[in-house]
Amino acid sequence: MSNAWESFYDWFDAILDFMPELPVGDWIEAFVEWLQNAAWLFMAIRGTVAFVTDVFNGFFSLIPPILFILILTAVGYLLVRKTGKFGLPILIFFGLLFIESIGYWDDLILTLSLVLTATLISIIIGIPVGIWMGRNDMVRNIVTPILDFMQTMPAFVYLIPAVAFFSIGIVPGVIASVIFAVPPTVRLTNLGIRQVPAELIEASDAFGSTPGQKLFKVQLPMAKVTIMAGVNQTIMLALSMVVIAAMIGTDGIGRQVYYAVGRNDLAMGFEAGISLVILAIILDRLTQALNPDKRAS
C-alpha cells in the first residue's frame, strides 16, 4: 500500500517539476506598462484629484483653527440635539483643541482634505456601480469578485501601480485610497437596492413609474440608510489608507507617523497616532449621526 502511495507521490512530484513557472508578475507589469500609453488620461486624473484636494485644503486653511473647531462643534451639537447624546460635540471640541495644541493642525487639515477627496471620488464611482449591480444580476456576478479581490489584496500593493501612474505625492495616495475604500460603498449600495421589499417595487411599477422614477422615488430612499452605512465605512478605510500612503510621499498626519517609525521616536509616534484616532472617531460619529432613521422621532 505504502509503495503505491510513494510511487504516486513521485509521479505527481515529477509533474510539478515539469510545470513551468507562470510569469504572473511579468504579465501584470506588462499590462501596467501598456496602460502608460494612456498617459494623457492619467494626467487629467492627476490634475483633477490635485485640484479637488487643493480646494478642500485651501478652504479649510482659510478658517482660523478656533473658528473651525467652534463650527464643527456646533454642527455636532445640531446633529445630536434631538437624541440628547452630547458626547459628540464635547469630543469634537476637546479633541480638535488637543490636536491644535500639540501642533498638528496643518497636517490634520491636509489629512482631512485627502480623506474627503478620496471619499467624494469613491461615492461618485461607488454609488452608480452599486445601483447598476443592484438592478442587474450579471453586473453583480462580475463586480462581486472584483470587489473581493480589491479588499483582500494587501493595501500596500496598491501603492506600487499608483506610483507608476501618478508618480509620488498626494495624488497617488488619494487614488490608492479610493481603490481601497470604494468597495463598501459599492457593496452596500447594491445590498440596499436589493433589500427593498418586492411589494414596494411592485407598487411602484403598478402605478406606472418609469425605471428612473422607481430608482429615485422608491429604491434610493429605501436604501439610503444602508448606503450611508457603506459611505461611513468608506471614510474609515480612506483614512487608514491616506496614512499608509505616507510611504509614497503623501503628506498629512500619516507622514508624521511614518517619520516617527523611521526615527523610532515614541513621543512623536503617539502624538500623531492619537491625533489620527481622534480624527477617525470624529469622522465616524459625525457620519453616523448624519444617518438617523428619520421616522424615529
Binding site: E202, A206, F207, G208, P221, M222, K294
Partner: peptide, 17 residues
C-alpha cells in the same frame, strides 16, 4: 397603469419614508 388600472396590495405596499 397610470390611467386605467390601480392595484391594492396584500401587505399594503406603502412607502414607509
Amino acid at each position: 397603469r397610470r390611467k386605467k388600472m390601480s392595484m391594492v396590495f396584500q401587505k399594503f405596499g406603502l412607502f414607509p419614508f
